[in-house]
Design a protein around this nucleic acid. Structure first.
Length: 362
DNA sequence: TATGTGGCTCGGGTTACATCA
DNA sequence: AATGATGTAACCCGAGCCACA
């Protein structure tokens, strides 16, 4: 059974109930869950059109990823593999330095030459991104503190290596990491450990803003974001993936709470109706002429064998298609488990139930 | 036209690390 | 200082889609 959960704009139809529909909806509108997610109007075709032209290293697979990133980097700039142990170099302005080609660190499989630092890491499975040799503590300090420099969204905290060459077309981004001593040790030992980067507040804020605009990225957007934030495209991609997952998780929690309240409401309504039914039965038993007086009859639904109270003056409503019914305004209205203020959600599909009982008493 | 293949992206799940109480 | 909880960056895997041969 597929349960469609959706909160948000109630005026928008739920479009993810079918598998293909889910995919389409996702591509066109971002997430199926529509809460606070804007439309991704430029995602679909443009993305497809760009797919074949851009190689930005989006693959989740590490090996592929590194290859892709390497390729992307190599297309932009010739890469000279650094075969010597990297000497820590104080960070300088990018205009004078060639950014350390992170792709050369792990993407050497592209041209088949693996050596030095590259070889050590490339040999290890995973080829994770934050595995460059860490800068010395002083450099690390600079890396961290550089986040707050300049324009709030033009952060520059990459680690650069002075090659003496200008790199006009090269990637600006290369290494963005805050180093931990533990990871440093592991790296020095050539161990395969994952170093974890914490994005700065500015980076996170900017990514959040972007996410509000579109929860998915096309390659161009990804590259632009990466360049703007001095992150690798892969990092931007991962951030968006994780962000979507977090959104969905939160949405699921909200939906669960909502369903719980709905269940409680329905339970209460059920209890009330049972009580009411009991009273009507009692009344009917004690007073044989009762049925003629309030013009109320009890009818049994043939399909679900439930008792429904219907007004005798009005046609008995037994099918979902019967939309004309007269309900006494004095009748206590049934509890609506899904009031309008609730997030958009129709738990039992958009089609009306096969039959429903009009609880109308007089 | 149908089919196989490779590339790409995604969601779901997991792991590993950083941070905090 | 040690430790458990929590958040999250990064990873792995399978599925779906598309382009191309």
């Amino acid at each position: 059974m597929e349960l469609g959960l959706s909160l948000g704009d109630a005026s928008k139809p739920v479009g993810f109930l079918t598998k293909n529909g889910a995919s389409e909806q996702h591509k066109k509108n971002g997430l199926g869950f529509c809460m606070e997610l804007g439309l991704n109007t430029n995602g679909g075709n443009q993305e497809l059109a760009e797919k074949s032209h851009e190689n930005d290293g989006d693959d989740d697979d590490d090996d592929d990823q590194t290859s892709e990133d390497t390729r992307a980097s190599m297309e932009n700039t010739p890469i000279q593999l650094d075969l010597l142990p990297r000497a820590p170099v104080p960070r300088q302005t990018p205009s004078h330095l060639q950014p350390l080609p992170w792709s050369s660190d792990n993407g050497s499989s592209e041209n088949g030459s693996i050596s030095g630092n590259v070889g050590l890491r490339a040999a290890a499975r995973g080829l994770e991104m934050n595995r460059l040799p860490p800068p010395p503590p002083a450099a690390a300090e600079e890396v961290s503190s550089a986040n707050s420099v300049g324009s709030p969204f033009q952060m520059d905290f990459g680690i650069y290596i002075n090659t003496g060459n200008e790199n006009p077309g090269g990637n600006d981004v290369i290494e963005t990491e805050r180093v931990s001593s533990r990871a440093s040790d592991d790296d020095e030992n050539g161990l395969n450990t994952r170093k974890k980067l914490r994005l700065s507040k500015e980076q996170s804020a900017f990514l959040e803003e972007s996410f509000k605009e579109h929860s998915t990225l096309n390659p161009k957007q990804k590259l632009a974001l990466a360049k703007q934030l001095n992150l690798r495209p892969r990092q931007v991609e991962v951030w968006f993936q994780n962000r979507r997952a977090r959104t969905k998780l939160k949405q699921t929690e909200v939906d669960c709470e909502y369903l719980k309240r709905c269940c409680e409401t329905l339970t209460e309504e059920n209890r009330r109706l049972h009580k009411e039914l009991q009273e009507l039965r009692t009344l009917k038993t004690s007073n044989p002429f009762y049925t003629q007086l309030p013009a109320t009859t009890l009818t049994m639904c043939p399909s679900c064998e439930r008792v429904a109270t219907t007004s005798a003056a009005a046609p008995t409503i037994t099918t979902a298609n019967a939309k004309t019914s007269t309900i006494d305004s004095s009748t206590p209205k049934p509890i609506n488990p899904f009031p309008l203020s609730r997030p958009r959600f129709y738990p039992f599909s958009q089609t009306p139930p096969p039959h429903h009982h009009q609880s109308a008493t007089s």
